[in-house]
């Protein structure tokens, strides 16, 4: 992909990653532009990059709200924006969320000035968020005492400052285990909730190590990883149990929703071009 902009001032950990932390927001930004959902976006943390457009483009922002401006125009999330060559995108302050996504697309039409185009994603899914993070049990769930199993679901865990693309460490009262016996290293996945010997939780994120040897007590379901990825240090995390069927249905609902937004955006884009 040709990147149609120049980074004037680098942000914190910007990356054109094929493994976004919040794959929903990344796909949503693409969907609003009618692009393929798995197209690579720029993932940004705050302070975010300052960007100059080197050619005329459509773009869309999703995920975290960092108060975006295109020249002097305030830019909302989830809207297609027309950016003429030479315009400058900047971010003022982190209002909500941890990671913002920038998708770009070539435009079938041309306008003189920066403009917010007249349609947006129906983001009902985001507007009524269930604050709970759903998990399915892991292989080593039974290592927790029954009291700790209850505590795992009832207590509030805070995201610590040790939270990055590799993993999230949580702050909470320690969870008690029946045994601390070592286990053989085995594969882990994005969303695996590991328990350290101190009874503290680590959730493996997008850049996680392929294998690990700490007990795996649960796994965050794929549909809730985007929500988890937008948590900031100090924010609360509470877990809720779910089963495989529910996990698959939630994921399917998200994917269908994204496909619908993409189809609707393609129609709008065509009629706007005419």
């Amino acid at each position: 992909m040709i990147i149609p902009y120049q980074i004037l001032q680098a942000g914190l950990l910007d990356s054109h990653t094929e493994k976004p932390m919040d794959s929903f927001s990344c796909s949503l930004a693409n969907a609003v532009l009618g692009s393929p959902l798995d197209q690579t976006c720029l993932e940004m943390h705050f302070p975010a990059a300052k960007i100059e457009w080197e050619s005329d483009r459509l773009f869309c922002l999703s995920g975290a709200d960092f108060t975006a401006r295109l020249n002097d125009l305030s830019i909302p999330l989830h809207r297609p924006i027309w950016a003429p060559k030479g315009s400058i995108l900047s971010f003022q302050a982190p209002v909500k969320g941890a990671r913002a996504y920038l998708a770009t697309a070539e435009s079938p039409f041309s306008i003189q000035e920066a403009r917010i185009l007249p349609w947006s994603a129906n983001i009902a899914w985001e507007k009524s968020p269930c604050p709970l993070i759903h998990v399915v049990p892991g292989r080593d769930w039974e290592r927790l005492t029954s009291r700790a199993q209850q505590q795992f679901f009832s207590q509030i865990h805070l995201l610590s400052h040790e939270a990055n693309r590799m993993g999230f460490r949580l702050d909470h009262p320690a969870l008690e285990t029946r045994t601390n016996e070592d286990i053989l290293s085995t594969a882990a996945s994005f969303g695996t909730v590991q328990l350290t010997h101190w009874g503290k939780l680590i959730i493996l994120m997008a850049d996680h190590q392929l294998t690990g040897g700490y007990p795996m007590i649960a796994h965050v379901i794929s549909a809730d990883l985007p929500k988890l990825a937008q948590k900031r240090p100090g924010e609360p995390i509470q877990f809720n149990l779910c089963d495989q069927d529910t996990a698959e249905n939630l994921w399917k609902a998200q994917q269908n929703h994204l496909q619908q937004i993409r189809s609707a955006s393609l129609l709008k884009l065509r009629s706007y071009a005419n």
Binding site: S189, E248, K252
Partner: peptide
């Protein structure tokens, strides 16, 4: 596929799976 000491793990493309009306089982 991820081999380990005693385990062979399979990572599934969940997007393709559910859009084909299949499930993990």
């Amino acid at each position: 596929l991820v081999p380990a000491y005693r385990t062979l793990s399979f990572h599934v493309d969940l997007k393709a799976l559910v859009l084909s009306n299949c499930c993990l089982s």
